[in-house]
Design a protein around this nucleic acid. Structure first.
Lengths: 220, 220
DNA sequence: TCTGTACAACAAGAACAA
DNA sequence: TTGTTCTTGTTGTACAGA
């Protein structure tokens, strides 16, 4: 009941995506429920999953929004929606229809706990080792690209990587700078169990490895 | 009413700061209400405002948490609480006690609210412009926080800001590093129309301004 | 299968009391 | 200044209809 009545005395605004009246911000942008859910459902899949059949310039409004998912999702991102506000799954409620569809394997780990997105991504990969590793690998790839990007940055700026004595090294400091702005990276660095290779990339040895790896890539 | 009853059937957890039972996450960390409010109230002031009288290693639990604010706040940060989940102030409701303690001067901005430095910077421009610009202002605030974060990073690392000759300065290079990972920042830097003040923050003068602004905030 | 609606769960801020 | 309670805002899930 908190939703219905109160909207009236709030400023009338409109969904930045499709233009219908909207009150609250979702994932960073004033938007309607439908667009919120649309983004929630599709943002992780990525724009790549959709292809616009009309040239990629579709107008998105209440009537047209369902026509082109590609342009709709694109607009969501362009308007500033971000996936970093996605939360993990919630405590599930007992369903009304008590029909249980999926039998949980006894061997597998905890059930019903709250999971972050990354957890979910990873758990998917772990369970079916066969196929489902793609998101995990993609995440890892992203992270590694990030790390290498930092290395390139430091190289280009001719900055030292590691600190001396007890001062924080430039590499670590830069990573921390990025962490503050990137929840996914932050989460990834926190939870070592999530890592494919069980090392922390902030360790000296890893840093050295990066340096050699990058040495030929760096463009002066 | 959603708060009381439901907590019972949830997983028992404990406040990462002080150890009392806690259910929900606040500012990124499972924590109790008191610690949530403590962080909310003090995080912006910064650790510098508190000084531990006992050497900076105080244990924080339910009984001791009120003794040393310095170590408590420190622990909040160390456990991963971040201020980036802070939201702007909400519409204030008329108080029950209608006794107004502070008469607000018509010319100056509102009094009595707690403000961060960045708030103060923004307030100047904020209230003059009518409403409607709030999303724009929020965006600007985020961007400025980002920029200041970069400045802090460089200051802490004792790095120079501007380059010599035609080499790219550290400040610009760092911003570019962030741009690659943050479409919103990238867009913002591209489109000057979004900017409240029509300058680019990558200009030398702005950089100098940042430096002086931050000079007293930096904790070595 | 995709979309939209309703509602519950969670998280943030404000008000109030001590 | 701290802790508690209340209110508001934001996110996820269930479910129904197209």
């Amino acid at each position: 009941m908190p939703n219905k009545a109160k909207k009236l005395n709030l400023d009338p605004q409109e969904c930045r995506i499709c233009g219908v009246p909207a009150v609250y911000s979702h994932f960073g942008v004033i938007s309607c429920q439908p667009c919120k859910m649309f983004f929630k459902r599709n943002a992780n899949i990525g724009q790549a999953a959709f292809i616009c059949k009309f040239g990629g310039e579709c107008e998105i409004n209440e009537n047209t929004r369902h026509i082109c998912s590609s342009c709709r999702l694109d607009k969501c991102f362009k308007c500033g929606m971000t996936i970093d506000k996605f939360q993990g799954s919630r405590q599930t409620k007992p369903k009304k229809n008590a029909l249980v569809k999926v039998q949980i394997q006894p061997g597998s780990a905890e059930v019903g706990e709250k999971k972050t997105n990354i957890d979910l991504m990873l758990i998917a990969g772990q369970r079916e080792v066969d196929q489902k590793r793609e998101p995990l690998l993609k995440l890892n790839e992203k992270i590694i690209i990030t790390l290498l990007d930092v290395v390139r940055f430091l190289s280009r700026q001719s900055l030292s990587f590691q600190g001396y004595g007890n001062s924080e090294g430039n590499f670590v400091a830069t990573i921390n700078l990025l962490r503050r702005r990137d929840p996914v990276l932050d989460q990834w660095l926190k939870e070592s169990s999530l890592r494919l290779f069980h090392v922390t990339y902030l360790h000296h040895d890893s840093q050295n490895e990066h340096i050699t790896l990058l040495s030929r890539v760096v463009i002066k």
